[in-house]
Design a protein around this nucleic acid. Structure first.
Lengths: 155, 155
DNA sequence: GGGATTAAGGTCAGGGAAGGTCAAAAGCGG
DNA sequence: CCGCTTTTGACCTTCCCTGACCTTAATCCC
């Protein structure tokens, strides 16, 4: 087992997340970088590769003086599991029909309300009426939008 | 939480606005600056970044002796009107910051729920991290998405 | 009445403190 | 050697806060 710096940072964050209880932890990028004697961007790398939505994490940050990084571990349940799988799949892009079907599915499963469904459908409708995008780009964009939506639904 | 001076001043103003009842509050810049031990211009900073029209506030001020700053929350009956104006304006495109502020405004006005706001913000976030779109196209796309959303909200 | 004084508030540039991005270099397993 | 992951470094954006300097209004006092 090659225990890399990234692994160590991951383990450290996980343990602090654990001891913090409540599944919420705030860290400073600079502090972590100092503690592990590495470039600050290394922290971004760890967050990007380990603390992903697929693994049930939500990471938010704020820049500027008094900024910081908030890491949240989402509760595990079956719905979340399905959402996570969908999240992974959406990364490969979506047709408009697929996007609409997913939204309808969420609605049927009562994962989203009636109005939430209409709002989201409106979004996908607007996307598709976009010039300046060929169908491949559009598919990728739909996928990313869906992923972001799923991240919210999982939180 | 990353709680800065600006956050504290914002919270203080909001609480006084709240306890003052119907949406009007008068403050003195100097007094606030003294209370928070900061430069008076810090108050301007907070007003400029937090109490913006896009978030539903109107700030007026009088200079000179006996001057002061009047902070007003937009009244409910003005909101429908604002939505129509916004719909027209959105047609000309939106920056990401404008889109976010609008969503925030809707949330503050209780036009959208907490989760609806997060979903919609997730959408605008995803749009902005989109390759294959230059900033003009992006601006236009945000505008069309916002128009579609407004159409749902007005229905 | 009119200038001087005083008491507000406004603007702007700049420094410092976060965090973000991206490409290139370095390691490493096969 | 090749390809993937890790790590770094240079450069960028955002946000907070202050200080120097400016504008406007009320008041004082002749």
């Amino acid at each position: 087992m090659p225990f890399t710096l990234a692994d160590a940072i991951e383990a450290y964050i996980l343990s602090r997340l654990d001891e913090a209880g409540r599944g919420i932890l705030e860290v400073r990028r600079r502090e972590l970088a100092d503690r592990f004697r590495c470039a600050p961007s290394q922290i971004n790398y760890v967050l990007a590769t380990r603390f992903t939505p697929e693994r049930g994490f939500v990471v938010r940050s704020r820049r500027g003086g008094g900024g910081g990084i908030l890491i949240t571990l989402l509760a595990y349940d079956e719905v979340a599991d399905v959402l996570r799988r969908l999240h992974r799949q959406a990364g490969r892009g979506l047709t408009q029909a697929q996007a609409f079907d997913l939204v309808r599915f969420f609605h049927e499963q009562e994962i989203v309300t009636d109005r939430e469904a209409r709002l989201v459908q409106a979004v996908f409708g607007a996307l598709s009426s976009s010039p300046a995008l060929d169908s491949d780009d559009l598919s990728g964009l739909r996928g990313r939008v869906m992923q972001s939506l799923l991240a919210v639904l999982m939180s």
